[in-house]
Design a protein around this nucleic acid. Sequence first.
DNA 1: CGGTAATTATACCTTTGGTTTAAGAAATGA
DNA 2: TCATTTCTTAAACCAAAGGTATAATTACCG
Lengths: 211, 211
Amino acid sequence: MSKKQALTEFHRGSILAAAERLFAEKGTEKTTMDDIAREAEYSKATLYVYFQSKEEIINAILLSGMVLLKKKLHEAIESHSDWFQAYDAVCQAIVRFYNENPTAYDAATGSIPLSQDGESLQKGMSDILRVSDEIEQELADFLVRGAADGAVRSQLPPVETVLLFWSALSGMVHTAERRESYIQRTLGLTREEYLQHGARLLLASLTKANM
Amino acid sequence: MSKKQALTEFHRGSILAAAERLFAEKGTEKTTMDDIAREAEYSKATLYVYFQSKEEIINAILLSGMVLLKKKLHEAIESHSDWFQAYDAVCQAIVRFYNENPTAYDAATGSIPLSQDGESLQKGMSDILRVSDEIEQELADFLVRGAADGAVRSQLPPVETVLLFWSALSGMVHTAERRESYIQRTLGLTREEYLQHGARLLLASLTKANM
DNA sequence: CGGTAATTATACCTTTGGTTTAAGAAATGA
DNA sequence: TCATTTCTTAAACCAAAGGTATAATTACCG
């Protein structure tokens, strides 16, 4: 019986992996169940054997993505004892994560409707919101650490500042993607460079001394 | 013949006004042509007498909205000789504008796909992009003025900084809307207050001295 | 083998929403 | 008043997409 379960997990994983690729490419809305079936090399009916609905697929991907994001941020924060270096690592982790998992990032920043199907909360929804909160808490703690280290202005209320920072950065990330060619043409910057400058600018809003 | 044209303009205006109300409320995607027809008190087919497609309606609204935004920003910038006061006025103008015209704001910040119909540029599209550029130019000039006044760090490249600022603020604006209840509950702030704090934070990233 | 259970491919249903058509109403002009 | 033109709109059309039913195929097991 465990073999059967393992097989089921394998199929679920294949489907999720395919969906993830398509979501990254076209977004959840423009990706159809037929697309996912084709990409995963199953028939559409098969998808409904392993998942109850498109929404369940989306939620599963968002959740695993956000758990991964949380892990990456944690690692980045722990990676350097120097707060400024850790800050760079955090921003870099975010940018990298977005490249590979834009849908989950959008969910984490609240840039996506999160399947507002009305009615009661979906199955995976509460998990997603919980992880989202945990991420923000992690960042808030990091900010407090920055204040303790003397790197960050200590007047800033951590939770509020983190939310502002988080939303500002997500705006930059979106613009960097949506206007990549404009940025390249007019400013001569790659997306990564542009976002690095953005991270610098936001850093200046947090720190005591300007650099 | 002028009477007939005036009548046509009147009908177009009624339809656009109705569409604008609905777009502000539900967004362009969730607003159907049936919705617009009902709100404007015409039949759906009549809409197609005065507009070729839904896209044309959207573009018309985006364009007029962005022209208005440009005007508001210009007025805010000119309203105070003191740069910091003008900055506050600019941010306030943006927030207010978003409340009344979220769709056009999203188009101006590039937060919206702008009817990616593939193919060639749509009719109104080039106008929209032009106004969008003009707005960014206006803001860039304002930043240069701030540097000349000694209010702003002069190392900042104006065009790039404006784009970063613009995208950061748009991220904050979106978060403020999407998580309004969370912000109210956890931080005890209204959306306007939250955004005011955000504008302060961003100001700190631009200025020489911290406040 | 033969039968039973699981799996999947195909076709279909339903809803939604943009667009078109054709018929009826209203206005215009002689 | 009647004819022609213009305007309006109900109804039909069409495509896309999520979801489902069925029937064929496969795999497993005695």
